[in-house]
Nucleic acid binder design. Sequence first.
DNA 1: CCAATACTAGAACGAGCGCTCTAGTATTTC
DNA 2: GAAATACTAGAGCGCTCGTTCTAGTATTGG
Lengths: 189, 189
Amino acid sequence: MATTREDIVAATTELFRSQGFNGTSLKQISTESGAPTGSIYHFFPNGKDELGAAVITESGAAYQSLLELIADDATDVVEAIGALFDGAAAALEESDFIDICPIGTVAREVASTHESLRQATSEVFGRWNGALSIRLAAAGIDGFKADELATTIVSAIEGGFILCRANRKTEPLRVTGRHMQLLVRAALL
Amino acid sequence: MATTREDIVAATTELFRSQGFNGTSLKQISTESGAPTGSIYHFFPNGKDELGAAVITESGAAYQSLLELIADDATDVVEAIGALFDGAAAALEESDFIDICPIGTVAREVASTHESLRQATSEVFGRWNGALSIRLAAAGIDGFKADELATTIVSAIEGGFILCRANRKTEPLRVTGRHMQLLVRAALL
DNA sequence: CCAATACTAGAACGAGCGCTCTAGTATTTC
DNA sequence: GAAATACTAGAGCGCTCGTTCTAGTATTGG
């Protein structure tokens, strides 16, 4: 059984996915989560900004766990990259192209206007980069190259979400994933 | 001398870059463009949605011209890709990380809620893809492969903007650009 | 069992939203 | 030069925004 706080964060995460930060109102969050305004302000006294930061940090950690699960399940790092992009594409299709990463959306919207949120997104991306980088390095890629490759892979996933959502097609993520596999394979030689 | 309509579109484009669609109010657009509300509704009778679509279509065309200029200025297609990403990175830094592509931001925000805007973003991305694809094919890459590569390149640019903006660093775009050059070079062999 | 704390509940606030409307001034067209 | 059209100007509409506030109910600790 989920706590009220978890309900609020979960509902907000879902709303951020399809409408972003500015497009989501506290009224909607209250309705979708079943928690009244008072509860939202009880758990997040600084209001929407604080709730937004929690959504970014916590959903960022959840994505990272998923990423690590996928990676450690694959037989090699090249297969892992493919599974990552194909998994994202499948989730997107299943949700009628709603289920994109909310962090990239919020980063674009508010990086210039809400410094605390910008920092939260930056930290999450940094951690993803680290998780990917470590696994690429473990597969035999030089540390610096691994870090650069991880940066490109995160960029490609986030950009892939944009094209998939705009076109209502999963091809961009799948195609981009295959190109990322190619880059990793080349770095392994 | 710019027309009032051009002033409105230009001001809105600039505001979308830093705050997105939902984060930008008509009041701000009026103030920044110098045009009163009446003028905005004179040129865009269907209001904010119609203005938003115009911003996407017109700034999309402007970016495409820039892309073609850069591409046709370069000695080869690999150099062109590098110039594209480095140019984007430089513009970003010069503008204190505000000057990202507004189209990717709007696509993520409103693709599920404003069908007309989603279509506008899809068309723009399609045209960019075409412009890139033609040039990759002209350099000797098989047509289908060229199209796929173009998709990945557009994804990578848009995703690169996210990481750069979140981290307030230009490295992600530059690193990603070098990786794209690598992919193109590999496809040319 | 009672006091303190945690949490729920939602009405109400001022501010700002997108949009409409009326009235005005330029500019064109015949 | 008169009539029609194009555009400017901004006050004001109903509504929703994020936030605050008061009052209530559970839950906990001594």
